[in-house]
């Protein structure tokens, strides 16, 4: 359904001395209808950027995105806007997701209005689906709690019956108990409506719960990708291994180590789709400067160790 091919996103700043940040470094990604692909990585790994890239909210520096057979990177603005009805975003900060001067009703109805759909009953249908009450509609964003706002954001994202929704860390700003509610809601809605999710998170446990497949991102590249349980249960790429191990707080803190924190390289400064960026890998060798994803038992790993 959705395919990203050789995607690059480079941010440049500065007038004379240009500073480059390569947020997305040569990524191939595919999401099938109705499935949930979890995109995990630490902050700065580029996962949010990739999510927005796939929605064409940011223009890729290079690469193609094919949605339902159509290359959306080549679309004219008007056509792109029409395509947007099928792909939506649930942002990370629920309290920022809606115009603070608009009532919730108006915010949820906005997508309908933009596309000329004259059906305000749909708003009531939507809040029913997400578990909000009518009284919430009449309020302003600053009068709702985080969980309620996130439900409203979900309602709004569903207004146009999208096929694909990018959930950008939807629960990282929410309390643990509210997180459970929202995640269950998302799963429920997926079952009912057959939506595909790109679920972006830094929390591996949540990723495992939500996802069929998982893609691990580091410094703008996908280092390992495959069935969620298998990848997290038996990681191949050294970085994935580190991530999985860090889950066990108990074990980690009891180990003897230096107090020097592990330096994490996030976005690189050179576009280099071929080189593995995990410089602190204990297994690093000269082969690592030119490595592509290798298929291994139903997953794709970008590491010499997979050979």
């Amino acid at each position: 359904m959705l395919k990203g091919e050789k995607l690059y996103k480079v941010f440049e700043s500065g007038f004379i001395k240009k500073k480059k940040i390569v947020a997305v470094d040569g990524i191939d990604i595919e999401i099938k209808e109705g499935e949930t692909l979890a995109l995990v990585g630490e902050s700065g790994s580029g996962k949010s950027t990739l999510g927005r890239l796939l929605l064409m909210l940011i223009k890729p520096t290079r690469g193609k995105i094919i949605f339902d057979g159509v290359d959306i990177t080549a679309l004219k603005p008007k056509e792109l806007r029409k395509t947007r009805t099928k792909m939506q975003l649930i942002p990370q900060h629920p309290d920022e997701a809606m115009d603070p001067r608009w009532k919730i009703f108006d915010s949820i109805a906005e997508p309908l209005k933009i596309h000329g759909i004259d059906d305000f009953d749909r708003v009531y249908e939507l809040i029913d689906m997400v578990g909000l009450k009518e009284e919430h509609l009449d309020r302003f964003p600053h009068e709702l709690s985080g969980g309620e706002l996130q439900r409203a954001a979900i309602a709004r994202a569903l207004a146009l019956n999208p096929k694909f929704v990018v959930c950008d860390e939807p629960t990282s700003m929410l309390d643990v108990s509210v997180q459970a509610q929202i995640l269950r809601l998302l799963i429920d809605l997926q079952r009912k409506l057959g939506i595909a999710y790109l679920f972006i998170t830094h929390d591996l446990e949540v990723a495992e719960f939500m996802a069929d497949r998982i893609a691990v991102m580091y410094a703008g590249q996908i280092v390992e990708e495959g069935n969620a349980e298998k990848v997290l249960g038996d990681p191949v790429h050294p970085y994935t291994k580190t991530l999985v191990e860090s889950l066990d707080l108990e074990r980690n803190t009891n180990e003897v180590e230096s107090t020097e924190p592990r330096k994490v390289l996030v976005a690189g400064v050179e576009e280099n789709g071929k080189e593995c960026k995990y410089y602190q890998c204990p297994y690093r060798s000269s082969k690592c400067s030119n490595i592509e994803a290798i298929a291994l038992n139903g997953r794709r790993v970008r590491c010499v160790l997979a050979e």
Binding site: S145, G147, E148, V176, S177, Q179, A180, Q181, L183, R184, D203, E205, V206, E208, F209
Partner: peptide
Amino acid sequence: KALLDSLPSRGLKPIKGFS
């Protein structure tokens, strides 16, 4: 009890209702 049950590692069981 409900709070612990809502953790991902314990099943992500939501607490019904709102605060």
